[in-house]
Design a protein around this nucleic acid. Structure first.
Lengths: 352, 352
DNA sequence: CTGTTAGCGCGTTCAG
DNA sequence: CTGAACGCGCTAACAG
């Protein structure tokens, strides 16, 4: 027989016996929300014996009874990615303040996401934070079908059926493009992220829009999508672009890792940054201020994103009829040393 | 009344009614461990109706009954720190393979750790992974008193009462010191971590031992402890050392962040690395291969540490009588460009 | 192979 | 203000 309380585990009933009251009185006395319905003296006696016996409420039992688990699940594609850990940190801070604990599921961006979500639901999580969705993700359908409160973080969904917190990707790209054009660049390439992610998709469109707004011809702004947000993918994309468009003087990358891959490609080709080619990243992840050269990038506050998403989720849990909202955070351009005025064609050819 | 199943939530009993069998038969049929005790035909019928009704087992109820939550808690001092996220990642991978979910508690290294641990225990976690302990931590006493399976990661405890997975800090320091002395350095300073952490303590002692083993006088190897594993703290410590010992030609830092703070201090003083002063870090965290100059550092596989700690925890849970073990992982020196032969005194004074 | 019975630990009615 | 009784959803003994 399982569950036969080991000697060490004190239950409500035992506290009641020792204190000489009924278990339900102990329950009331120990619950801050109901303790006022019990006489001061009895509350004291119960609290003391509970303390003395080392009583700890069994939240699993309470959950079964109340239907509330005080657990929030969060799905991230890669915990070790420096983009997601601040999100996690901000979210768990906000949630902890309301007494919620965070269950993290690291899902390798494959088909296992739905399984994991189901497993979290089976554990009665009260809501989900989704940091790993694609633009058209079955997970979203699932949450809606299950009427499970959920909020998207960092990425949004094409049909906006769920609340989300994202950065203004179009603005970010505009900031980057404006900065480069102001410096004098007229041949700017983009290294985009995977088009299946909202960030990849929106930053690509944002780049195109920014280019058009400044009256640059599309031919002067070639694009390549990286297969993943990874350094290697960025390197490969940069090589492809440089091969096809040797006239490029600047790169706008859809994230910092891609930008660093770009550095790798430039180095391999004997090109210097920013002397020969300028590079702009996206995210401002830790340490990019220390790489060589310090990376000019579009800063996003991921910690704040996580915090706000958690807040939105809590609101949605309190009021299920609340309308879905999209919170758009403004990014900021951080200029460092990876961007500079382009050299003239003459100097580039070796005269300088 | 709470818990009155909403229309959408299907229970075991409902499946049983529709399938025309007893609830316990459904339980047996749906549990892989017991389904063989039910006739093939009935299993099929039950599985189908369960599927059709969209039945999802309530693991909270199962937990209450079986006393097993399939939840593991992990306490980290800072999720956003790039040292801990790989640990988390490795651990959750190992645990997920055994059907365990990971509950992450981000504890701001204050006194709230015990509270958090209690809250996890109240949720019936079956074991704890501790990545945030100090050398003499009440948390350890707590786990032992509660007979709660627990394993320390990255840091160890002075009395070794709990199993742990750590890197060989003494070896790491020896690798660093040997490398610098082989290059010709004879005035080597250490920027240590907080002495309250095992890593800070052990790396400091390891440094001293390595210096002594090579026959260098203690006066030629001054040390400063940083108050925290942070860039700013490293910078401050480096300034103090440089002020008091201008003859220093190399720094050994207790972690990479400290080493990067050291870069900041050198830059502020107009000293170049490695031309004027060499720097060695510890951890080999992401991107330190890209900073300027690429950091020579002692590599630790945090992901592996997390994985092994989880494995040790699972073993301890299966066999509570198992002896406590300390798994020591060997670090590796990764030589990059932040270390070089020291310049001669003459050249240092400006002749070169 | 299946049904019956009991209860995990708690919170919440309803009485008094 | 306190006690009694019930049940959340599930699983494990015991029968048959």
């Amino acid at each position: 027989m399982v569950g036969k309380s080991e000697p060490g585990v004190v239950t409500l009933r035992e506290v009641a016996e020792v204190a000489g009251v009924h278990p339900s009185t102990v329950s009331r006395a120990l619950n801050p929300a109901t303790s006022h319905r019990v006489s001061k003296a009895v509350v004291r006696r119960i609290s003391e014996t509970a303390e003395r016996l080392g009583y700890r409420a069994n939240l699993v039992a309470a959950s079964l009874r109340t239907g509330r688990s005080h657990l929030i699940g969060i799905l991230v594609p890669d915990i070790a990615n420096t983009v997601f850990s601040p999100i996690l940190s901000g979210a768990s801070e906000r949630l902890a303040a309301e007494g919620y604990l965070t269950v993290v599921a690291d899902v390798p961006d494959g088909g296992r996401q739905l399984d994991l979500a189901r497993s979290l639901v089976a554990r009665q999580v009260e809501g989900l934070l989704l940091a790993a969705v694609t633009r058209d993700d079955p997970l979203v359908d699932y949450c809606i079908a299950q009427r499970l409160p959920a909020v998207l973080v960092n990425r949004s969904e094409a049909r906006r059926r769920l609340s989300s917190v994202v950065s203004d990707d179009a603005l970010g790209m505009q900031l980057a493009v404006d900065h480069l054009m102001d410096l004098g660049h007229r041949a700017i390439a983009q290294i985009g992220g995977p088009e299946s992610t909202s960030t990849g998709y929106n930053r690509h469109r944002g780049f195109l829009a920014a280019i058009a707004a400044r009256g640059l011809a599309p031919e002067a702004a070639p694009c390549e999508s990286a297969e993943a947000y990874a350094r290697e993918a960025g390197q490969a994309a940069a090589h492809r672009l440089l091969e096809a468009h040797p006239e490029i003087t600047a790169f706008v990358a859809a994230n910092d890792l891609l930008a660093l891959g770009c550095y790798d490609a430039l180095k391999a080709r004997g090109l210097r940054c920013p002397a020969d080619v300028s590079v702009v990243g996206h995210n401002d992840m830790p340490l990019v201020d220390l790489v060589a050269p310090p990376l000019t990038t579009v800063r996003i506050s991921h910690r704040e994103m996580g915090w706000e998403a958690a807040d939105l989720l809590l609101q949605g849990m309190r009021d299920p009829s609340a309308s879905t909202r999209t919170l758009v955070l403004a990014p900021q351009l951080v200029v460092r040393d990876s961007t500079a005025r382009p050299r003239t064609a003459a100097r580039r050819r070796g005269a300088g």
